[in-house]
Simulated scan of single mutants.
Amino acid sequence: MTTVYSEPLALLPILALSVRQPWAHAIVKGWKDIENRKWNTSQRGLVCIHASAFIRSNFDSDLDDYSDVVSERITPGEHPVPSTLMAKDLDFGAIVGVARIVDVTMRHSSPWFFGKYGFVLTDQQILAEPIPVKGALGFFDWRPRKIVAPEPSARPATAQGSLF
């Protein structure tokens, strides 16, 4: 079940965790309840989920892995999880939602667990609009990394006059 983040954006957690797509999407949609990592953490609580930048080779590989997990491990009808996702339907290089880390485990019954360490997630929520942010490794303070769109010109540019 997808839950939309309803708090003011100013209340978003300071720390973010960058996750490649389509895994980030699966987290914030509430399907994926474990984030697999090779490293442990003492971090607990609500964190922002950052969808990393688009890299074709990474996305193609991760999409294949995602499809394998869904087809081999997710019981049909148990969760409305699509077996494949399209890059055009996903956000990249942005904070896309939040999730609460409640534990870290090396064993779990979740069909999404296949890492050395699994960050156990609850309270997954998707943002109504993604926030463009340059990612980083590990947990990072995303606010100084926010990508600000240039301000539109206050007045329209005048057309260049005749060159001749």
Rank of each mutant, 00 (worst) to 15 (best):
M1H: 07
M1I: 09
T2V: 15
T3Q: 14
T3L: 13
V4S: 07
E7G: 13
E7S: 12
P8F: 09
L9D: 06
L9W: 01
A10D: 14
A10K: 11
L11H: 10
L12R: 03
P13H: 09
I14V: 15
I14A: 13
I14G: 03
A16S: 11
L17D: 03
V19L: 10
V19N: 02
Q21I: 03
Q21E: 15
A24S: 09
A24V: 11
A26T: 08
I27N: 05
V28H: 07
K29L: 08
W31V: 05
K32S: 04
D33F: 02
I34H: 04
I34Y: 05
E35H: 07
E35V: 09
K38S: 15
W39V: 13
W39C: 07
N40D: 13
T41Q: 13
S42A: 15
Q43C: 13
G45Q: 12
G45W: 12
L46M: 14
L46F: 05
V47P: 00
I49W: 04
H50W: 08
H50D: 09
S52R: 02
S52Y: 01
F54V: 04
I55A: 14
R56I: 01
R56V: 03
N58G: 01
N58W: 07
F59G: 03
F59N: 04
D60N: 10
D60K: 06
S61T: 07
S61N: 05
S61Y: 04
D62S: 11
D64S: 10
D64I: 09
D64M: 11
D65W: 04
Y66M: 04
D68L: 15
D68N: 14
D68V: 13
V69T: 14
E72I: 04
T75W: 02
H79M: 14
H79E: 10
P82S: 02
T84A: 12
L85M: 12
A87Y: 03
A87Q: 08
A87H: 03
K88D: 13
D89E: 08
D89V: 02
L90R: 02
F92I: 08
F92P: 05
A94R: 00
V96Q: 02
R100M: 07
I101N: 04
V102F: 01
D103T: 12
D103P: 11
V104C: 14
T105E: 11
M106F: 03
H108D: 15
S110N: 05
S110Q: 04
W112Q: 05
F114T: 00
F114A: 06
F114V: 00
G115W: 10
Y117T: 09
Y117I: 12
F119L: 15
L121A: 02
T122D: 06
T122G: 00
Q124H: 07
Q125G: 01
Q125E: 15
Q125M: 12
I126V: 14
I126M: 14
A128G: 08
I131W: 08
I131L: 15
V133K: 04
K134S: 14
A136G: 10
L137F: 03
L137G: 06
F140V: 08
R143Y: 02
R145F: 01
R145I: 00
R145V: 00
R145Y: 00
I147L: 12
A149E: 13
P150M: 11
P150H: 06
R155I: 10
R155A: 11
A157S: 10
A157R: 09
T158M: 14
A159I: 14
A159L: 15
Q160Y: 10
L163P: 04
F164M: 14
